[in-house]
């Protein structure tokens, strides 16, 4: 790790001011991404601004019936929170299926959205990677890309967005609230993640020094009937090969409301809008699910080793929806 200096801040204004003033500085939250990437020289800030003392770790009710997750709330605390578990089980499940208990005790939800890709070329400073070193090429395109994306890719970058939480949030239309040098903003979660397109180095619309203060979950009754399905090679402590976040309500055998997002297969947490369109109002049957899955994966592009993800994603969608419907029928 290169030498770094360290500051600890106690209020939001100082946090933003300090990082804004120093282009070589960055926020340090749980550190589970930041310290890791510093140690392998993928990120090389000269100064860490520790924001763990900021009063941003609460979980609060919003007047409209939504829920506000403080940016510094820990993954484990959010996952265990009764309101999250009851009203947004998909969020709790996505969190609990991510990382490990120790990491979840450290990691913040804002940091989780900000984590960087797990592409091994990105993590190897001697390898070509457009995201880490723009213009050097994409090592994964013709390389070891079993874990890479099949949706939202470009010829510049095919790295999968690694967050599980973000997939659940995208399904629910959460809002990311920030504060920065230019004041506060609210960013719909879907706009928070950028496609790689021609600038894979740009992942978020945030400016330097802009702080994620909270994530707002909207009041959304259907979210109580939601779940997160994560498929991977080992049973725990691994990123997703394919993940599905789904919320659905069925009335008289027909899908009354549907929210669907995919993880592990796309360069950003992937809201499956095409599938939602197919499903909206359709009979709650395996046929509909399959048809929706086909439509959603229609634009998928494989890069060799990750070919299987296309079919796996389809089947996982069917699985998630089938189980949700069964659960609802049982309830």
């Amino acid at each position: 790790m290169r030498p770094v200096s360290y500051s600890r801040v106690a209020d939001v204004g100082t946090a933003i001011g300090t990082v804004t003033a120093d282009p070589e500085s960055t926020f340090l939250a749980g550190g589970t991404t930041q310290i890791d990437l510093l140690r392998i020289y993928v990120e090389q800030p000269a100064r860490l601004v520790d924001i763990n003392d900021l009063p941003l770790n609460g979980i609060e009710e919003l007047p409209d019936g939504g829920l506000r997750l403080g940016g510094l709330a820990r993954m484990s605390d959010v996952a265990a929170h009764p309101a999250v578990r009851e009203r947004y089980p998909v969020v709790s499940e996505a969190l609990l299926l991510g990382a490990s208990p120790q990491l979840r005790n450290m990691a913040t939800v804002a940091g989780n959205l900000m984590q960087r890709v797990r592409c091994s070329y990105f993590r190897d400073t001697e390898a070509p990677c457009n995201k880490r070193a723009p213009g050097t090429g994409c090592g994964a395109l013709d390389g070891v890309n079993r874990g890479h994306a099949v949706l939202g890719t470009s010829d510049r970058c095919i790295a999968t967005h690694p967050s599980d939480l973000a997939v659940a949030l995208v399904a629910l239309d959460a809002v990311v609230r920030t504060e920065g040098p230019a004041g506060p903003r609210s960013i719909p979660i879907d706009d928070f993640f950028l496609l790689p397109d021609r600038t894979p180095e740009r992942e978020h619309p945030l400016t330097h020094g802009e702080l994620v203060t909270s994530i707002d979950l909207p009041a959304l009754p259907v979210a109580a009937r939601s779940r997160y399905v994560k498929i991977r090679d080992r049973e725990s402590y691994e990123f997703a090969l394919v993940a599905v976040a789904a919320a659905m309500s069925v009335v008289a055998g027909r899908i009354a409301e549907i929210r669907l997002a995919l993880g592990g297969v796309a360069t950003k947490p992937w809201r499956a809008r095409a599938a939602e369109q197919v499903l909206d109002g359709a009979p709650a049957t395996a046929d509909s699910y399959r048809r929706a899955a086909e439509v959603e994966l229609e634009p998928a592009v494989s890069h060799g080793m990750n070919e299987f993800k296309i079919e796996l994603a389809r089947r996982t969608i069917v699985r998630a929806l089938t189980e949700l419907a069964e659960r609802e029928a049982a309830a």
Binding site: P3, V4, S5, Y6, S7, R8, V9, G13, T14, G17, T18, T20, A21, D22, P23, E24, A46, R47, V49
Partner: peptide, 21 residues
């Protein structure tokens, strides 16, 4: 030896420690 800091701290900026011991 590493210098304490390069950028002049902004008014609302926090105390800088390191990068030395």
């Amino acid at each position: 030896s590493y210098q304490a800091t390069r950028t002049a701290p902004a008014p609302d900026s926090a105390v800088v420690r390191g990068p030395g011991e």
